[in-house]
Amino acid sequence: MRDGARRRSILFLRLAALGVAVAAIGFGKTFFYPLVTGTFRADPMVYVHGIFLFGWVGFFLSQSVLIHKKRLRLHKQIGWAGAFIAAGVVLTTLYVAVLASRRSAAGGSPAANGELLVIMIEMLVFGALITAAIQLRRKPEAHKRLMLLALIASLGPAWFRFRHYFPEVSNPLFFYSVLIADSLIAVGAIADYLREKRVHPIYIFVGGGMFLVHLVEVFAFDTAAFQVLADLIAGPLI
């Protein structure tokens, strides 16, 4: 492996390890600790969702390790497992989101439809990234960056739960789920520039588009137009 390629593999390996840590810490107070202490109770699909979500993060880490160790054949052989896991993430996330939104609506929350719409948009983005990565699997420079963006997209909920550790942070949705979570896009772009004096178009256009979607979700959420759209799309599911 050339020095430049090896440095890139180390970057992806470190970001993958960071993703595992963020998922573990983010869901530590609301899932892992209650699960270990026997105080966690939820619909069975929530457990399935957890398996798929953490399975996806673990899968990305394992694939990054294989690339770093130059086990390219094995990396390709188990690659299709990622498609199955990603599909599980999307389906179980939507199922669990509908359950949560129904509880919110039953409790009188006016934001239930909007919250569900946000999750639907996030799963659309995640699914599109995975689909594009599969289609471009024979173009490794694009493929791996799309997979990294999919990892970043999947970590938003985990980052948001950092508010349980630092409740004093104002506007935690913007700070954790957008500013901190999407900063990893900038890390990849900066690494590109430092190594190659250019930024790959995937980071510029796809990563930039993902960041804009997140900004719109945060700042349009309380607008009348977003609520109308949420009632139209998410309302029938609740």
Results as ranks from 00 to 15, higher is better:
residue 7 R to W: 15
residue 11 L to Q: 10
residue 12 F to L: 13
residue 15 L to H: 05
residue 15 L to Y: 11
residue 22 V to Q: 14
residue 22 V to R: 03
residue 23 A to M: 03
residue 24 A to R: 10
residue 25 I to F: 02
residue 26 G to Q: 07
residue 26 G to T: 04
residue 27 F to D: 04
residue 29 K to T: 08
residue 32 F to S: 08
residue 34 P to M: 01
residue 36 V to S: 06
residue 38 G to K: 12
residue 42 A to L: 00
residue 45 M to C: 03
residue 45 M to G: 15
residue 47 Y to F: 06
residue 53 L to M: 07
residue 57 V to N: 12
residue 58 G to R: 08
residue 60 F to N: 06
residue 60 F to I: 07
residue 61 L to M: 13
residue 63 Q to D: 06
residue 65 V to I: 14
residue 70 K to G: 12
residue 73 R to H: 14
residue 74 L to W: 14
residue 75 H to R: 08
residue 76 K to S: 14
residue 78 I to E: 07
residue 78 I to N: 11
residue 85 I to S: 11
residue 86 A to Y: 02
residue 90 V to Y: 00
residue 90 V to N: 00
residue 92 T to L: 00
residue 93 T to K: 04
residue 97 A to P: 02
residue 98 V to I: 11
residue 99 L to H: 05
residue 102 R to W: 06
residue 102 R to A: 13
residue 104 S to H: 06
residue 105 A to H: 15
residue 105 A to G: 10
residue 108 G to W: 02
residue 108 G to P: 08
residue 110 P to C: 11
residue 111 A to Q: 11
residue 111 A to C: 01
residue 115 E to H: 12
residue 122 E to Y: 15
residue 122 E to L: 09
residue 122 E to F: 04
residue 125 V to E: 14
residue 126 F to K: 07
residue 127 G to T: 05
residue 129 L to I: 02
residue 130 I to Q: 04
residue 131 T to F: 13
residue 133 A to V: 09
residue 136 L to V: 10
residue 145 R to W: 04
residue 146 L to H: 00
residue 146 L to N: 12
residue 149 L to Q: 09
residue 149 L to M: 09
residue 150 A to R: 08
residue 151 L to H: 15
residue 151 L to P: 05
residue 155 L to F: 08
residue 156 G to L: 11
residue 157 P to V: 05
residue 158 A to V: 03
residue 162 F to T: 05
residue 163 R to L: 05
residue 164 H to W: 13
residue 164 H to R: 13
residue 165 Y to A: 07
residue 168 E to P: 06
residue 169 V to P: 02
residue 170 S to G: 10
residue 173 L to R: 10
residue 173 L to Q: 15
residue 174 F to L: 08
residue 176 Y to C: 12
residue 177 S to Q: 11
residue 177 S to W: 10
residue 178 V to D: 13
residue 182 D to A: 03
residue 183 S to P: 03
residue 189 A to R: 08
residue 191 A to V: 00
residue 193 Y to G: 06
residue 194 L to P: 11
residue 195 R to Y: 10
residue 198 R to G: 15
residue 204 I to N: 08
residue 208 G to S: 12
residue 210 M to F: 14
residue 210 M to K: 08
residue 214 H to W: 01
residue 217 E to D: 05
residue 220 A to H: 07
residue 223 T to C: 10
residue 225 A to H: 15
residue 235 G to F: 00
residue 238 I to C: 04
